[in-house]
């Protein structure tokens, strides 16, 4: 077990493609850090640089107190779970689990004991003599996890490990990974596209954009106080509604709450925070017609075509909306639920 320290790391691929630019991140011992961001923002690249599968153009990666820039993947003592699992197809499950231990010259008795233990934890003992092709997707996923944990490495690296599973299995495995990581207390870096996975798994969440870190923090903090428009739009589903203050000001009979900073020219509000009744605090009122209602289990997503505003507003309503599609509706934005941004820098202002 070890901390991971990434200092001023850059990655330039051949052809002058800058995938990571000047990135700093400290991951403490035993922590589970989740990397999220749009496709192509450099998540896999960062992970692969930690693993040693990709050279580091500039900067420094430390695992524990050792600089690992020049070390081979084998010498870094990390384990990685790949999106396609990368199980060795010609070896049985047992051989897959043993491979890393054998390469490290672990004594036979210990290999046996560790493989059996890992198989027990992951409930794959029954499959030990099968080949990977004789397993279902979920079982393969477990074997891939098993191959990581038998080695008892300093850190786990996960690159979208659950993205090939169906929604239900993904939910199960997510909980299992969390439990496993809690009990093993192994430092982990986890890349995902899935909001739910990111929010629920992360001790700390890292939002990346175009090779940079936008914001790092506890998932709840990122949700409640997004540091930039990008994070505001990326974290939370459905995404935050963003309005131009200039447009809001022109709506008839509107006075903007005094709590909005003078520098701000954009305000955002989560779909869950929009009210249908007038709140007790200062607010901005909006009017419009219901364009579309999506019932989603216990709640409904309502899309409203607002008078005087181009973009549709999204509202999350608990239960069902009394009004039907096409009916007139009033919405209220409580001042305390507003997020203010400066459009030029894209940053949050208080």
């Amino acid at each position: 077990m070890a901390s991971i320290k990434i200092s001023s790391v850059r990655k330039v691929y051949p052809g002058n493609v800058e995938a990571i630019s000047d990135l700093n991140l400290d991951i403490s011992d035993g922590e589970l850090v989740v990397l999220v961001g749009p496709s192509g923002c450099g998540k896999s690249t960062l992970l692969r640089m930690i693993a040693g599968l990709e050279s580091i153009t500039a900067g420094e990666v430390r695992i524990g107190d050792k600089v690992v820039n020049k070390l081979e993947p084998a010498e870094r003592d990390i384990a990685m779970v790949f999106q396609n699992y990368a199980l060795y197809p010609h070896m049985s499950v047992r051989q897959n689990l043993e491979y890393g231990l054998k390469n490290r010259r672990t004594p036979k008795a210990e290999i046996e004991q560790r493989v059996n233990e890992a198989a027990r934890i992951l409930e794959i003992t029954r499959f030990l003599d099968r080949k990977p092709r004789q397993l279902s997707g979920g079982q393969r996923q477990r074997v891939a996890m098993g191959r990581a944990i038998v080695r008892q490495p300093k850190a786990f690296l996960f690159d979208e490990p659950l993205s090939n599973l169906d929604a239900k299995l993904r939910g199960q495995m997510r909980i299992e990974i969390k439990r496993l990581q809690r009990s093993l207390k192994t430092t982990s870096v986890y890349v995902t596209h899935d909001q739910l996975e990111a929010m629920t798994l992360a001790d700390r969440l890292v939002v990346m954009n175009a090779g940079r870190i936008e914001q790092v923090g506890k998932p709840v903090d990122l949700f409640e106080r997004p540091a930039s428009l990008f994070v505001a739009g990326f974290i939370g589903s459905p995404p935050m509604n963003i309005f131009e203050l200039a447009t809001l000001r022109q709506l008839p009979g509107t006075t903007l709450p005094a709590s909005i900073p003078a520098k701000a020219d954009l305000v955002g509000i989560r779909p869950e925070a929009l009210r249908l009744e007038e709140p007790a605090e200062p607010f901005i009122a909006l009017e419009g017609t219901v364009e579309l209602i999506e019932p989603v289990g216990g709640e409904s997503h309502v899309y409203v075509n607002l008078n005087g505003i181009e973009t549709l507003a999204t509202v999350v309503v608990q239960g069902r909306l009394a009004e039907g599609e096409g009916s007139h509706i009033k919405l209220f934005m409580p001042a305390s639920a507003l997020h203010s941004f400066v459009s030029e820098t894209g940053q949050r202002v208080e």
Binding site: A51, P73, M80, Y99, R147
Partner: peptide, 22 residues
């Protein structure tokens, strides 16, 4: 797949071992 070779290198196999065993 390249990921097999990568997995093997993380599993501690050098280039020759990777070639002959994977």
């Amino acid at each position: 797949p390249a990921s097999l070779s990568e997995a093997a290198s993380i599993d501690g196999a050098g280039p020759f071992k990777r070639f002959w065993t994977i």
